[in-house]
Design a protein around this nucleic acid. Structure first.
Lengths: 214, 214
DNA sequence: AGTGATAGTTATAAGTTCTAACTATCGCGA
DNA sequence: TCGCGATAGTTAGAACTTATAACTATCACT
């Protein structure tokens, strides 16, 4: 048989792939994904241009893998926080920190979409992991008296949360947590709050706190 | 004197510039800003490659002008709605429609930032126009009893709204209107709600409605 | 030790932005 | 109406990019 999984060739290959990705992340962090150059990366890892195509079929292929890793990193971070007992507030701070650690990584997932590009299916599965954590956190809060129209709607269209038993109220809170936090984070990371001297944590805190009350 | 402003040369020049921008917008709408090719545009308007540099100093220069136009379009749209008496809800629908009309135009302003790129100063002035409208709309709502910590903070750090006399409560509502709506719109336009069968208008309505109550 | 898969090489094609150098055209003033 | 100067366009080319083709060296396993 060839390569049971840990042959020298295989180990070398995964090491070089990791090296390539490491340099790719550095480029993305400092100049954005549009400035990512396969040629430049190849030279940085010590090989010449086309050799890199032995490891990634194309530029899009490499970026897709980076997107996958970014999703994985976010899901793991959120899951770890949940395991440590974080509520919605705690999750908000964890996600804020994760986004700030590498804004371009955040935008790789949630930023400007490229028309025609479709994220691989497994990334939506990872996104569902994150959503499940948010749904769990949302369920810990008491639901309001009469369900709102949105809650009724979400309760009826629940296919995307798979078999999670969350109530309409919990789904609404999880969804709203997501949209509110993303709104704040993406505008902040994009520099739209520059020169506003805004206390972002105060804004996040009050927005998430409002979710607790409604 | 030369060119009082309406010489034949000048008129031809502005017409060609508009032509170039028109094709640029088409490219951006269908393939995103990263796929914008000066060469392709030049051929579409009937000139060969480098001739386009008579009209725009560089690719970045053209994009910057498109960003400026996008800001201008948004500000005009919002201002027109306000003149027609739109409240925060009405403004939300107008902005939603404006974003949907050309998602890539929306992302050109609010999408993934390019590290190192600084928007020209006049765009922040246009953004202030939009903010002024939101502040006006926020002032029409009654303020809650004790000001929240965020409202107190915003009241103290009000340099960015220039001389607008809005209260801390109004600033908070305008800011929150912006972050909430952007969170929803950007995730939707980016396709993050795909296959969720989500009634976006219901989500927007409840989020903006919650602002009225707090 | 030999051999076949793998990893690297260089050359090349077809793009891109953008500069340089040159030419043709257009419009204004005399 | 003629001429001249500013403007608009051209082609050539430099320095990049992604990506493929063809070839060679290396490495690990039988």
């Amino acid at each position: 048989m060839t390569d049971p999984g840990h042959s020298p060739r295989e180990r070398y290959r995964t090491q070089v792939r990791a090296d390539i990705k490491r340099h790719a992340w550095e480029q993305i962090a400092t100049a954005g994904v549009s400035a990512l150059s396969l040629n430049a990366i190849a030279k940085l890892v010590g090989m010449s241009g086309p050799a890199l195509y032995r490891y990634f079929a194309s530029r899009d292929d490499l970026i897709t893998e980076l997107i996958r890793d970014a999703y994985r990193s976010l899901a793991d971070t959120v899951a770890a926080a949940a395991k440590d007992g974080a509520d919605l507030s705690g999750l908000a701070w964890v996600i804020r920190d994760w986004a700030r650690a590498d804004p371009q990584r955040y935008f790789l997932i949630f930023g400007t979409p490229v028309p025609g590009y479709h994220a691989p299916d497994d990334t939506t599965a990872i996104a569902a992991e994150v959503m499940a954590v948010l749904l769990d956190a949302g369920e810990l809060l008491p639901a309001g008296e009469p369900a709102t129209p949105l809650e009724t709607h979400l309760d009826a269209h629940r296919a995307w949360i798979y078999d999670h038993p969350a109530t309409g109220s919990a789904i609404r809170r999880a969804l709203t947590f997501w949209t509110r936090l993303h709104g704040i984070l993406s505008l902040d990371l994009a520099g739209q709050f520059a020169n506003m001297d805004l206390d972002l944590d105060l804004l996040i805190a009050e927005e998430i706190d409002a979710l607790r009350k409604h």
